[in-house]
Design a protein around this nucleic acid. Structure first.
Lengths: 233, 233
DNA sequence: GAGGGCTATCATGAATTCATCAGCAGGAAT
DNA sequence: ATTCCTGCTGATGAATTCATGATAGCCCTC
């Protein structure tokens, strides 16, 4: 669930001092910072490997940042936070209506900027997660869909009890690895359980529902004297 | 593409003058405005028919607006724009991290507020493109028309109580997914409810009105030990 | 092959979870 | 006040799930 890779932020700013200030501040917060000093460089950076968010100064030497935003919005939903020395209300309305997601007037507090960055990334993550069906686990003939809580073997749905489901899910998340009895018991039954017998019984039932020949399992392998393993080749 | 029904905005503000000012301004821009003067009324309004956006004053008589936001975020993604007289940076960071989508310090310009409302609605439209309340949902033999608040099964209209309707609507919006008891309770009954029994009873009534054989449901499936699911295949 | 340790399977009963009926309180309409 | 509707709660029986005990099978060593 947690995104391990740091968010990449494109910083579009011509003043070199402000750029350095923001770069160090963002780097310290574990963001990847890419820099552009004008609209041309910003266009290049976005069409290359797009960042996760854009911090955009409006006063660019080679064109208005508003135009840049409008142009970007014609093909991308990348979050844009405008930083501007212009504090007039019309400027804000123009930028926001052009497609910017937020507008901060210089001078601004760093903590507020960081909080607004978090808001923008939150929004982006939400709309990303919607149309991302890649949450389904495919392991050999097995399919696990955690959203629908559905398990399929050779495309045939099988119904599992809560315990069976949790056991299979834990094995599937660690497909290929050998998991000791103790490890499985702790994760599926919770701490304080040390009765391997119940695990064996549950595993047997799981095999009956998943394996074509439960006596000679091809997916839920037992590792003698150690534990179990879900084959993933 | 154009939304014909005006956006509904919940205005949470205790000062009566500010409320009147905003109400008239928003009405003039063709928004539907619902009003609440404290957190309790706001909770009621949201759990009833949820608005499209919330304008939230932080200084409420009966509780902190931040807590309200956090509580709301535990079960809803409704856009929240905070209006506050407190302009300290920490206040902004707190509110934004609690789940607010924007923060304006009083006094603010009306045009800026309107622009930021447009931004928030834009975001919501993007991520809620699926469940916009305009379209009629067709799921198997079920038809749900949110505008007319009408439900049909095999083209036969059925009359539902408000609670039954909300339950069915929530299940239908997430057709195919398994929804845990807790999830359903939070979304339909509001946060703070943990009594699964009432949910079971309501579900039984719903089945009696929708299923041809309530004892062997074909649409409103129970997922043993987990929750319920509306079948969509 | 015999024996010991580990594993699989079946059966049974307890515990949990569900569905349904009925009763009751609160609110709106008559 | 009466009536009706809605929604909550308690009780009961049914269905499912799960742990445990008994028994048989498998694999390795001796």
């Amino acid at each position: 669930m947690t995104n391990t890779t740091p968010a990449r932020i494109l910083l579009v700013e011509d003043e070199i001092q402000m750029r350095r200030f923001l770069r160090t501040a963002l780097n310290a917060r574990d963001f990847d910072v890419i820099e552009a000093s004008n609209a041309r460089e910003a266009r290049l950076a976005v069409t290359g490997r797009p960042p996760d968010l854009i911090l955009l100064d409006l006063g660019l030497p080679d064109g208005d940042g508003i135009d840049f935003t409008r142009e970007l919005r014609s093909w991308s939903q990348l979050p844009v936070i405008v930083l501007s020395a212009r504090g007039r209300e019309d400027d804000k309305v123009m930028a926001l209506d052009a497609g910017a997601d937020d507008y901060l007037t210089k001078p601004f507090g760093l903590n507020e900027l960081l909080a607004r960055i978090r808001v923008a990334l939150r929004h982006a993550a939400r709309s990303h997660a919607r149309d991302n069906p890649e949450t389904i686990l495919h392991i050999g003939p097995l399919q696990l869909d955690p959203v629908r809580r559905e398990v399929r073997i050779d495309d045939q749905p099988v119904t599992l009890t809560p315990l069976e489901y949790r056991l299979l899910w834990y094995l599937a998340k660690n497909a290929g690895r050998v998991l000791t009895h103790q490890l499985i018991l702790r994760h599926v039954w919770g701490p304080g359980t040390s009765q391997t017998h119940t695990l064996r019984v549950c595993m047997a039932q799981l095999r009956h529902k998943i394996e074509s020949d439960p006596a000679h399992p091809r997916i839920l392998m037992t590792e003698m004297g150690v534990g179990y393993r879900l084959r993933d080749d």
